[in-house]
């Protein structure tokens, strides 16, 4: 369903963020993307919906080559790909409902969206999604009045309002507490299963990834160094992805979330 073929990304600064990444996702496949900061995880998923333009390689969604699209065709392709963001990226000053309905922007004309006259079916879909993520009581609240977990649920509802075939999930739990993190991950995996959605989930927390995601891809310095089942993440594999560290002693709670995860051993206390 999604085929990424020898994807390259070279930034104007000369940094090679991706060095020929290839992977394949079937319908309903959900995969965790792990790796140290700067490995290119964020660039990779942003290449898929072309928020970042790849330098070389192909991305096929169904039989559409996403790298060749522009203008209206690109926007129609983006409708098929939902995205969930790290710091929620909700439009803070709009209401919850407007945020969810903004997932329909690719489907409605400019004036309908300007006057907030979305088709009745879209509104009903939005209500249903808000029911599903448990926010029916907050429809008319402004997004910045919600807690972190609630905001991320709005973000999930917005992505699903697009009626996507593929979900791109960028560090969904990075700013959430451990309990909310689990709830959000559970919600995402459940929703993917219900709708047989394919998803790529960027995630820092290896333990959380192992708990919820059956397949893991390890990225290091723009190259895939591991692609296999979550159970296969042995200390050796983790060393290959993140670098030297005493992995046997790392309890899930102590997992670092910042750059230091990529440093050689001896740095940790």
């Amino acid at each position: 369903m999604l085929v990424i073929d020898h994807l390259e990304k070279r930034y104007k600064t000369g940094d090679r963020a991706l060095k020929g990444v290839s992977l394949e996702l079937g319908r309903g496949d959900i995969v965790g993307l792990i790796g140290p900061s700067g490995a290119g995880k964020s660039t990779l998923i942003r290449c898929v919906n072309r928020l970042v333009d790849p330098s070389a390689g192909r991305i096929l969604l169904g039989d559409v080559d996403l790298t060749a699209l522009s203008g209206g065709a690109l926007r129609r392709a983006r409708r098929r790909i939902g995205m969930i963001f790290q710091e929620y990226a909700l439009v803070e000053r709009l209401t919850v409902m407007e945020n969810v309905l903004s997932g329909r922007l690719g489907y409605v004309g400019f004036f309908a969206s300007w006057f907030r006259r979305f088709p009745e079916a879209d509104v009903q879909r939005a209500f249903a999604l808000l029911d599903r993520v448990g926010l029916s009581d907050h429809v008319d609240k402004r997004a910045d009045a919600l807690s972190g977990g609630q905001r991320q649920r709005v973000g999930i509802a917005r992505a699903l309002a697009q009626d996507p075939e593929l979900l791109l999930v960028d560090e969904p739990t990075a700013s959430l507490d451990p309990k909310t993190s689990r709830q959000v991950m559970r919600l995402i995996t459940e929703l993917c299963a219900e709708r047989s959605l394919a998803a790529i989930v960027n995630i820092h927390d290896v333990a959380l990834a192992q708990m919820f995601l059956p397949r893991i891809i390890g990225l290091r310095a723009g190259e895939i160094v591991y692609d296999g089942p979550a159970a296969g993440l042995t200390p050796e594999v983790l060393t290959r992805i993140y670098g030297e560290e005493d992995w046997t002693r790392t309890s899930p709670r102590e997992e670092e979330e910042d750059e230091e995860a990529g440093l050689p051993a001896g740095e940790a206390a």
């Binding site: 963001f85 710091e87 489907y107 400019f110 969206s113």
Partner: peptide, 22 residues
């Protein structure tokens, strides 16, 4: 905040819609 712009763009919104919503 560029993240909000990115999020609205990712839904497939057109230029004027991004201006309005983000």
């Amino acid at each position: 905040d560029p993240a909000q712009v990115e999020a609205v763009r990712a839904t497939g919104a057109g230029f004027w819609q991004v201006l309005d919503y983000a």
